[in-house]
């Protein structure tokens, strides 16, 4: 690779430009609070479009954790308070995110992108199940693994969105 090509590829350092980290209890109001703070912290560093996609995806990911934790508590009785760890780093090409929690494991089906929904007239509309559709539609490089008692979901929100066009 020539120096000129390198120059084109890397006009500026790829270091993170802004970071947001938060540990929060797994409940809806804490999720809202974390997203509000994340918005205030990162919106000077990313476009309104990236901010909108970032906030939406994080809301869906964390709402899933809250909801499925509540399901597990109903099934298995009270469980110890669960915590979500959220990290987001703005970089040149978008925002890199990692969300971990100590809830139940993710069903493998969630990791397969669902087909785009059609809503034929006359058929009852679904009221849920849109969370993973949104997550898959707006993220890149989505990875999940479970280690001991923790789930980790990592993904990138691209600066340029080719999915929505």
């Amino acid at each position: 690779m020539t120096e000129a090509a390198l120059g084109v590829r890397a006009p500026e350092p790829a270091a993170a430009e802004a970071l947001f980290n938060r540990v929060l209890p797994a409940d809806h109001l804490s999720v809202r609070g974390a997203l509000t703070d994340l918005h205030a912290r990162l919106s000077p560093h990313v476009s309104a479009d990236v901010m909108g996609r970032l906030e939406l995806v994080l809301a869906e990911v964390m709402n899933n954790i809250v909801r499925h934790g509540a399901d597990a508590a109903r099934r298995d009785g009270p469980v110890r308070p669960r915590r979500i760890h959220l990290s987001a780093a703005c970089h040149r090409n978008g925002v890199a995110c990692a969300v971990t929690d100590d809830g139940i494991g993710l069903p493998p089906a969630c990791l397969v992108a669902p087909p785009s929904p059609a809503h034929p007239a006359g058929e009852p509309l679904p009221e849920g199940g849109f969370g993973w559709l949104i997550i898959h539609g707006l993220t890149r490089s989505l990875v999940y693994f479970r280690e001991d008692t923790r789930n980790l979901l990592a993904f990138n929100i691209p600066a340029m969105d080719e999915a929505e066009g």
């Binding site: 909108g52 929904p117 849109f130 559709l133």
Partner: peptide, 9 residues
């Protein structure tokens, strides 16, 4: 609008 579009709503 983004949410409505992504879900075809």
């Amino acid at each position: 609008m983004r949410v409505l579009r992504l879900t075809r709503m």
